[in-house]
Nucleic acid binder design. Structure first.
Length: 356
DNA sequence: CACCCGTGGCC
DNA sequence: TGGCCAAGGGT
């Protein structure tokens, strides 16, 4: 049986991760804290394990329970999330914590349907929490599982159309016993053996069951629909510095790109050349000096941002933003592209490391 | 279904 | 160097 072979492999080769309960402990009936499972799953959406670890430690230390997170200020949560990307996740995380804390008595729903009704929890995350935290035999399908299952069964249909077919194949494979370990085993297999490039098929516990191995190049699976090309957008960013070295910041709108995050004033980002050499669009008149451009690649476009710098008297700033003292920038809800722009204008402004 | 939504690491 | 990819969800 495929699930048994996979679970035996998992018992020996599972990854130890901060949000996990190890297989021996799980075998004794110990379940992981649903709050930690949920938090890790949301952080891991389209995000690498390595990137998540530090954020997970910070969040769980600062907000040990879902009620703590529900009582936190949204602004503090956004600041803590800064750098992780996909900021709608942070807004939904807060909303979800409030729903669980105040409408479900602080207890996470233990069914897939109940979980999926919460903000920021979709098909994958609902199935994953139900399986891992509540021992439900739900079909967990993420990018790793898609890769494993498409190779195992030589699925020729391309994603995303093939998703229902893949989910059915996973459902058929999911055992009644240890469904949470099975889901995590599939993901570990995809992350460490059945990798996108150069999979270690010689070490795979499912090699005898794999319909692609020996017949075709595993790297060709899963098949995917052709993707669109990324357009280039341009804009300008203005880094104003007052007499004390403070920097002028403002808050972006709540929705859309980088919603609710902090920024330096700037032009819009368009496909035209406008922003490139347009200090006229500055937030207040000053002797703006061009100091180069930064490039930042978002999911669906590439941004080339022209950066300007000027010394601006504190009283001359009449916008809707605020002056943020030097040395306190690290704690702000600044997305990476804004840290890049500020660093382009003032190379020494951040305390440590790369961007945080 | 198609599009929107970040970031960093990898080869 | 740049395209690809990572434990996707919302609209």
């Amino acid at each position: 049986m495929i699930a048994d072979r996979l679970l035996q492999w998992y018992d020996r080769h599972h990854r130890d991760l901060p949000w996990r309960v190890s297989p021996p402990m799980a075998a004794r009936g110990e379940r992981p804290d649903p709050y930690r499972v949920w938090l890790s799953e949301v952080m891991l959406q389209q995000t690498t394990v390595q990137a998540v670890k530090a954020y997970f430690a910070l969040f769980t230390e600062r907000w040990p329970t879902v009620v703590d997170l529900a009582r936190a200020g949204t602004e503090d949560v956004m600041k803590a999330w800064a750098g992780l990307g996909y900021y709608a996740r942070a807004r939904n995380l807060k909303k979800c914590a409030e729903a669980v804390a105040f409408e479900h008595g602080g207890v996470f729903p233990d069914s897939e349907e109940g979980l999926k009704a919460l903000p920021g929890i979709g098909d994958y995350t609902a199935a994953a929490i139900a399986a891992i935290a509540f021992d439900r035999p739900s079909a967990v399908l993420d990018g790793n599982v898609e890769r494993v299952i498409s190779r195992l069964h030589a699925v020729e249909a391309p994603l995303p159309a093939a998703k229902p077919q893949m989910r059915a194949l996973v459902a058929a494979l999911t055992p009644a016993g240890r469904p949470g370990d099975f889901a995590q085993a599939m993901m570990d297999l995809g992350a460490t053996i059945c990798t996108p490039r150069r999979p270690a098929c010689a070490l795979c516990p499912l090699r005898d069951d794999c319909r692609v191995l020996g017949r075709d190049d595993p790297e060709l699976y899963p098949r995917k629909a052709a993707k669109k090309e990324k357009p280039v957008r341009r804009g300008a960013a203005f880094v104003a510095e007052d007499e004390t070295g403070a920097i002028y910041l403002r808050k972006r709108g709540e929705s859309g790109l980088l919603g609710g995050m902090t920024e330096v004033p700037g032009t819009g980002w368009t496909a035209r050349m406008d922003g490139e050499t347009d200090p006229v669009a500055a937030p207040f008149p000053a002797d703006w000096a061009a100091c180069g451009t930064v490039t930042h690649v978002f999911t669906h476009f590439e941004l080339r941002l022209s950066v300007y710098r000027a010394a601006v008297p504190r009283a001359a700033a009449n916008g809707d933003g605020w002056w943020q003292a030097r040395g306190t920038l690290d704690g702000e809800a600044l997305p990476t592209v804004m840290k890049k722009a500020i660093r382009q204008a003032l190379p020494d402004v951040f305390q440590k490391g790369k961007f945080s």
